[in-house]
Design a protein around this nucleic acid. Structure first.
Lengths: 202, 202
DNA sequence: TCATAGATAGATCGATCGATCTATTTAATG
DNA sequence: CATTAAATAGATCGATCGATCTATCTATGA
């Protein structure tokens, strides 16, 4: 019943270690130890080895984060408020982990996007999943497809960058400052969207 | 005369390789080969080994980039235009390198910020240098200290994040979209700054 | 010419890398 | 109980890691 619990522990440990010290910086010995999983089980569940495990870890992380973002849009009154909530949540994650728990996808991208084409695609798909959630959220507030896509890239890029700055500085300052300014920017753009709501409904 | 040319080649190769495939993902054998430098020279010039070389590479990269940003502010009419120019320049760098040449400081941060405190500080200082240039640029357009600091973090974060997204997607799209929206955001904020110019002069 | 320091050259070190391999144990099914 | 597959366990592989070491070559100055 709890048969594949080991497999799940491996995925979570991978996500946790990759996001704190990158892909190349994490050894599989260390990973299996953190997961309290036997070495043999790693290649039993992931015949493709480290890369296959990493791809699955990104998939899992993508889903977990995505859910949080959907909730943010559902609970907030406007798109700007939703986005600032995401920034605040991210700041809490960083502060609660001594600025270790960054974004696993960003870490993977900077590590292997130029050396492993398959993993680069996995990173791109993980980002695309988040972008789609943002696009959907902005579209629900009246943004047309082009504006929503641009705004989604803008918001996601700022979050990712702010995480990097906050981790380097070991301070929530960059995330908070970016959250406020991104909120202003989103709300300013959203003013123009509402006029399109009628057209978008057709 | 050309005595320390080898040393400089090592620094440039380090910057080039770290920005492409990260710190842990780059071996020193590969690095010395890329620099066409003898293995022994590495520890001759950098007794502190890989970490010391990395710190110097970040210092060098920080200076090179910083100069470009100062030029952008000097040549542009307004702060928004200057920033969008930086985004465009970055997009050109990525396109010209098949999306390999990202930011070495961001790569280092995600790789070792949580495992090597000395290098984390080096990353923070490199970012701080760029932030100071941005702060100076915004202050020159009338921003007060607090607004300039927040805006600098916002702009730098968005650039760094957009680089990550563009590398993952192998497309200049994210950088271009972010450049336009950041320009709008900067210009919108800058409207409020000009009213403070008098106060800032006192 | 000789002495010295700087720089080059690479062999070699122990440690660790990801991966493969053979056993053993466990769980499910007849 | 017997059979079979899944899962666990870890020894071991060659390759590579960063680092240390000695030796050689080169330039400078006395």
């Amino acid at each position: 019943m709890i048969a594949s619990d080991t497999r799940h522990r491996l995925v979570r440990a991978a996500e946790q270690l990759f996001r704190t010290q990158g892909y190349s910086g994490t050894g599989l010995k260390e990973l299996t130890a953190a997961a309290a999983a036997p070495w043999g089980s790693l290649y039993h569940f992931f015949p493709g080895g480290k890369a296959e495990l990493a791809a699955e870890a990104m998939l899992w992380a993508g889903g977990a984060y995505g859910q949080g973002w959907r909730r943010a849009f559902a609970q907030a009154a406007g798109p700007g408020e939703a986005i600032e909530g995401v920034f605040r949540a991210e700041a809490r994650i960083l502060e609660g982990s001594d600025y270790r728990n960054g974004c696993p996808v960003a870490a993977m991208t900077l590590d292997i996007a130029s050396t492993d084409e398959r993993l680069r695609r996995a990173c791109a798909e993980a980002f695309r999943g988040w972008l789609d959630i943002l696009v959907e959220g902005f579209a629900a507030h009246g943004a047309d497809a082009e504006a929503a896509e641009a705004m989604a890239n803008f918001v996601l890029a700022t979050i990712e960058g702010a995480i990097v700055l906050s981790r380097a500085a070991k301070s929530p300052g960059p995330l908070h400052a970016c959250g406020r300014l991104v909120r202003d920017a989103v709300d300013a753009e959203a003013e123009g969207w509402s006029k399109l709501e009628v057209r978008a409904g057709g």
